[in-house]
Design a protein around this nucleic acid. Structure first.
Lengths: 216, 216
DNA sequence: TAAAAAATGATAAAAAATTAACAAGTTTTA
DNA sequence: TAAAACTTGTTAATTTTTTATCATTTTTTA
């Protein structure tokens, strides 16, 4: 699929953003766009957009630009959004519930097939059309359904142990919300982190930095 | 405070992670650490750690290393975590509620002082010790309380309009969860984005990429 | 229909970020 | 107490990422 393997992380992280902006253009019924116009909208350089896209192939046409729909589809395909990776959610607390309800998994490559919690009060609750299961059912469930990925919405304290359990059950891909860095015990797992605390701290830094500059 | 202004974004984004790891060392009663040891734990190079820290000053000592507690405090201070920036939360849906309940604002530079929603069914609900207010009360509330930052947990569709409202009320700092890029209408605002969709798409890419490599 | 304008993809240049190397100083060991 | 082992902060080298340039092709205009 890819031109020649190993796309750099910065490029990959920009792809979803391209995808989003192109989606908005589709909604506005715009059919073609040049790297220049897109760069204006997105606050990037046109050069960067062309460079990024050319990691995967020449999707544009000289003198014309890019087909919005065509490029949107291409990027969706590059990201693998046409997959339906089976995901299970660990932790049905506020955060886990929010993720289950808030996200449109089906549009972005996943299907949520199970929700687990070890709190008996949570077991049995319905979220979307799934019933929260006890963590004791994990083994049976995984053997029957072979989930591809796990969404980690558990407290830091239970993260390491739970990771081991899931690793033994064959799960290698993780979306991690716990305030804990997975991925050190095993070198064959993929982890995408959402460190909310870290993000808020960065905002705190930026605010403090701005205020500091004013004072100078 | 800073040695000489303008710290690069990659460095800033690593600071919370250093802070977290140092916090764990404190919990384990470890009092000193070398850049080498820390780099092993964190999966970085020792050189990078020393380089990063030296953006802000020489916190270590030759032959000894760094005082864990001292460095933790320094980084917390650099991040501005000793502030209590007043934050309001917009959107008391699943996601907003999760943020309010899940995060320890007070430990990371903020204080949550108000929650707003435009859904009458949500107004009046208690989250933590705050009662959800109607968005019509925003103006009065802001004039009385002067919040420093807004946490954006609203749907994409209402994001642009709400941003304008808050901008007019003087709010310049945003933590953005909406699937929308703020920060183009105004060049004097600070936005820290948490694009959950984007993050999940990146995971999707990584999984697809790994599978693709296997097939090759 | 011919010239001008516009736009890509590719290559080259520049800038930024990471890693390596090392002098200078501290701690530990024997 | 003297030598060996460590470790930082800094400077240099390397690598990565971003930006600029330009030949080539397409579209638009007159």
């Amino acid at each position: 699929m890819n031109k020649d393997r190993k796309i750099s992380a910065p490029v990959i992280r920009r792809l979803p953003r391209y995808y989003r902006f192109l989606g908005e253009l589709i909604d506005k019924n715009i059919q073609r766009i040049s790297s220049r116009e897109l760069s204006d909208k997105m606050g990037l350089t046109a050069s960067q957009i062309r460079q990024d896209l050319n990691c995967f192939g020449g999707f544009g046409q000289q003198g014309y630009g890019y087909s919005v729909k065509g490029l949107h589809d291409e990027i969706g395909h590059i990201l693998g959004l046409d997959n339906r990776y089976k995901a299970i959610l660990l932790g049905a607390g506020n955060l886990g519930k929010a993720m289950a309800v808030h996200l449109s998994f089906e549009k972005i490559g996943f299907r949520l097939i199970g929700i687990f919690d070890n709190d008996p009060n949570k077991v049995g609750i319905k979220i979307n059309d799934l019933t929260v299961m006890n963590e004791d059912d994990l083994e049976r469930f995984c053997q029957e359904n072979h989930p591809d990925a796990a969404i980690f919405c558990v407290p830091k304290s239970s993260a390491p142990e739970l990771l081991e359990k899931l690793y033994k059950l064959g799960i290698r891909n993780y979306w991690n919300f716990s305030h804990y860095d997975l991925a050190f015990e095993h070198d064959d797992i993929i982890v995408e982190n959402v460190h909310l605390n870290d993000s808020l701290m960065v905002l705190c830094y930026k605010i403090s930095d701005k205020n500091g500059q004013k004072e100078n």
